[in-house]
Structure formats: C-alpha cells, structure tokens
Design a binder for these strands. Structure first.
Ligand code: MN
Ligand code: MN
Ligand code: ZN
Ligand code: ZN
Lengths: 149, 149
DNA sequence: TTATTTTTGCAAACTACTTGCAAAAGCTCC
DNA sequence: GGAGCTTTTGCAAGTAGTTTGCAAAAATAA
C-alpha cells in the first residue's frame, strides 16, 4: 500500500491522475496531483482562489496553483474562461463532456449546457428563463505563417 | 462652424457620435467622443492601452479611458473580449456587423469572420489555414430569480 | 544512492484596472 | 449667454489577480 495524499482516495483515482500528467509530459508532483484531482472531482469553473480555498490547508502556495494551472492550460488538461471581469476560471477539459456556460450578469450564478449551436443554445436559454442574453465567442489557433516557423 | 476636436473631421461624424452618446443617456464629453470616434473609425479589437496610444497626446487620462469603456460596455456601445490573457479588448458594437475573432496562439494576429454557426466557422478557419483550433464561448444574461428583484 | 533537473514556497514585483478627491467641464433653466 | 447644480475628469494612490527570482526541496535519471 503506497502513501497517497489525503484528498486522493483510491488507487484508481491516483493512477488516472498520474496517467494524465505523464501523458502530457509533466512530472508527477503533489501540488499537480491535488489540483488536477480537485478539478476532476468537482465540476468548475473555479478561480485560482476557489481552488486554493478548496485544497487542504497549506497544501500548496498560490503561486504554485497559478504555475500548475498555466501548465494545465498549455497541455490542454484544463480550459479557461473569463466569465467575470479580470479573473480567469478553470475547469477540467473532459473531451467527452464539451459544454459551455451561462453566467447571470447580476448574481454571477453559473449554469451549463451541452448544446453547441448558437441559435439552439439561445432558445434553450430563453426557455430556462434568461433575459438580455449576449454571447462572447472566440477562436484560438495557429495561423499559416506561424506553422512554418 | 462649430469647434470640433481634432480627430473628429466632419460634422456628420460628430453628429453620429453625439447621437450615439445621447441615445444611451451619456453626457457628451470630449474624452467620450474621442474614444468612441476612434473605435468607430478603426476596427479593433483594441486594449485600453492601444486606445490610449492611438488618441492624440494628452487627450485624456488612462483612468478616463477605463471609465468610458466600462460605460460603453454597460450601454452596449462596445463589446469586450479576453483574447489575450489578463487583458480585455474592446471594439465598437455595430449590430449590422456582428462577427467573431480568431487569434493566433503564437503571433497574436487577430482575424475576423461573420459566420455564426460553430461547425461552419471551424471549417472556414481550416480553409484559412489555421491549425489546432479551440474555441471559447460564453453566454451572459439575467437569470429568472434576478429578474424578480 | 548520487547526480542532475525540475518544481516548490516565499516574498517581492508587476500590471491591468479602480477609486477618492478636488478642479474642470457639461447640463439645465432662466 | 450666464448662474447654479450635476457629472466627469485628471491625478495619484490603491487594489487584486497574476508572475517571477531565488534558494531549498522534491522528482527523475543513472
Ligand atoms: Mn463547466
Ligand atoms: Mn472585430
Ligand atoms: Zn441571477
Ligand atoms: Zn500566427
């Protein structure tokens, strides 16, 4: 029986997390395991501060959380969004559960849905009772000239 | 012949800008006119710093630019997006030219297109030569319970 | 284990953005 | 146009999310 960090309960869970990290070429460290385990277990999106508060006390430094999240973004283990002004939110990037969010402009409650066609989504949201709906959609990719260099 | 700020060239342009501000219940001040005129003339998206640099020297303070942009967002005269990490970008919200952006992950060049269906957009982008495409889509609205209060 | 590389914690720095306050500009009504 | 009231601006200081330099600690490789 190997030693596991408190918040990772089973060997399978541990194996999954270690597998994901290694797959992406990241070394297996305790902070990385804890953060990834948290994001897999609890569905976000979470701010860096949310994550810090949810981790066991003194589990790791805030700077480490930011460093890990940036590595997870680069390796596409997590996705980020700017749902509120000036603060990024993160969640585990489960390719089988691609979805999007709607945040209330007033109370900031975050809801999610799995549709991915704009018209369909907007009518889904109207049915859910939302008013004054706007969306923000951005694409990111590598352009032709950057692929050459 | 009334006095116009240097960067607003014609009476029509001036009238349009004044009209837009009044329509939204905003008083007509020089900084607001200059910023809005710039965003209408040059197609963004621009960061607050971009705007500051593009305005005539000492035209207005950075704080004023942020204040104006926030008012323009609230009144939906402009839209904002987080195309790069930690920095908002703004552009004039022309309802007849609704469009979205793609930014190269490497060189940060921003391209735009007018399609608004995800599958169609992605294939348009592939034809344009982009690789490794991701998107980020968020909706914002007022939820049912907030409409009551 | 030992040597090498990577990551972490800590504290300080950075930067986009906001805010308090007094002066200036805009608006309203005469 | 001018008086009086309201709103906005410039300035400087402050805030908050995020990053970074460095030495110690942990992970990986041999
Ligand atoms: Mn989600
Ligand atoms: Mn645009
Ligand atoms: Zn709400
Ligand atoms: Zn590029």
């Amino acid at each position: 029986m190997s030693t596991l960090p408190t918040s990772i309960k089973t060997e399978e869970e541990n194996a999954k997390i270690v597998g994901l990290l290694k797959e992406k070429g990241l070394s297996v460290t305790l902070p990385r395991k804890l953060i990834l385990a948290l994001l897999i277990k609890e569905h976000g999106p979470f701010s860096a501060e949310d994550i810090f508060k949810k981790l066991p006390k003194n589990a790791c430094d805030q700077a480490t959380i930011y460093r890990c999240l940036n590595q997870f973004i680069e390796t596409q283990l997590v996705t980020s969004a700017y749902l509120e002004k000036d603060m990024a939110h993160f969640e585990f990037n489960d390719p089988h559960h691609h979805h999007h969010h709607i945040i209330c402009k007033i109370c900031k409650k975050i809801d999610s849905f799995h549709d991915c066609i704009l018209d369909k989504i907007e009518s889904t949201l109207v049915k859910k009772g939302y008013k004054d709906i706007q969306h923000r959609l951005e694409f990111f990719g590598v352009c032709g000239s950057c692929q050459k260099s």
